[in-house]
Amino acid sequence: MPSIKLSVLDLVPLFENKDAAYALGQAAELAQTAERLGFTRYWTAEHHDMPGLACTSPEVLLSHIGARTGRIRIGSGALLLPHYKPLKVAESFHMLASLYPGRVDLGMGRAPGGQAHASMALSGNFIENIAQIPDKLRAITELLEQNYEYDGYPVTARPIPPEPPELWMLGTNSKSAAYAAEFGMGYVFGQFMSDRDGAEVLQSYRNAFKPSPRCPGPRTIVTVGFVCADTEEEARELAAAGMSLFQSNISTEELAALAARKLLAGTPEALTMRLEEMSLQYGVDEFMLVTMIPDYRKRLRSFELLARSMWSSGGLQTQDKERGGFNGR
């Protein structure tokens, strides 16, 4: 049986007519719950001018989350690199890594994270910014290794933490996988957003990987959408309700077909078995879970049910089972 690590990706959604302050409070509760259950990481995404999501600045939220947790790794999933200068990115995550040593991940992505006008208001011409991605990735790796120069002069991203952030590239296709391989960083495949063959994309990353001081060998995570409930019927209903928030004007049948492609929905036992199968299929030992159940309590329970099932099967691997694992609370 595969030994699997579970992590959380939080989009920080606004549900139940609650405001952003409430949603951010629920983000902290999700991170604390994930830590108690033995999850490896809590990552939060970045989006701009999207009414249903409350996180525009992962580094600010992560500072809040880090102060309210003690062991779980915290990171961005993803910081949208086209919008930012490498030095500012490195400084922000060096600050986090100095506050929470050995716990910080810098996950980067290439998406705009919002509609065109929001993207332009944030950083100008997005197409031009995308073209700079290789140079930005190179600069960030040099800044984290403290060997960066600008116009021939050394520049250091301060403060210098005891341990630099882990570097990850997130994506849904071979382009992002190629960047991760070229710059010697971990790769996270977003299955919940992709119609690509995940096994093929991950293998392309492994084949092209170039070792780096930070990452001597390829490291992979697969992000999956999931809904876990006591019964199959309830899981399907919750999945459809979550998908309907982002897919309007489509039929119930189309919604069900979309949910089946984009996420796993079922009982704890069924999802445990499916993750174990996917671990072998994709050659990964870590899954990052995201769910858009439009009910905060049921969202937490979905994570709890799956973690309990994984513990019972002996398939859940944590950084610290004795302190971090599910304890029935």
Results as ranks from 00 to 15, higher is better:
A178M: 10
D195T: 11
A241T: 07
G184N: 05
R219D: 01
V201L: 09
G198V: 01
R138E: 12
E237L: 08
A111I: 09
A229S: 08
G124L: 00
F189M: 11
I140C: 00
D230A: 14
V201K: 06
A121K: 11
K175L: 14
T231Q: 02
S123K: 08
Q203G: 02
A121M: 12
P165Y: 03
A121R: 05
G109I: 00
G242W: 01
S176H: 08
P159T: 03
P218T: 02
L167T: 12
D197N: 07
I127N: 14
Y153Q: 14
P162Q: 02
A157K: 04
E142C: 10
A177Y: 03
A181E: 05
A131M: 06
D197C: 06
R110N: 07
E182K: 15
I130T: 10
A131I: 05
R158F: 13
S176M: 08
R196I: 01
F126G: 04
E234N: 05
A208P: 02
G190M: 03
K175N: 15
R236I: 10
L238K: 10
D151L: 14
A178Q: 15
A118S: 13
R110E: 06
R214Y: 06
P213Q: 11
F226R: 01
A177F: 07
G124Q: 03
P162M: 01
F183N: 06
G186W: 03
S119N: 04
P218L: 04
P112V: 02
G109T: 05
S204G: 13
E142F: 03
N207S: 14
G114C: 07
L238Y: 09
E142G: 04
V222Q: 10
E182Q: 14
L137F: 11
W168A: 00
E149S: 14
T141R: 15
R214P: 10
V201D: 04
R196Q: 15
P218N: 03
S176W: 05
C228G: 10
A118I: 05
D135S: 13
V155K: 00
G186E: 12
N173Y: 10
E237Q: 12
N173T: 13
I221H: 05
Y179S: 09
Q203H: 13
V222N: 05
M243I: 12
G198D: 02
M243F: 14
P154Y: 06
Q132R: 15
N147M: 01
A235G: 13
P213H: 01
T172N: 04
E128T: 09
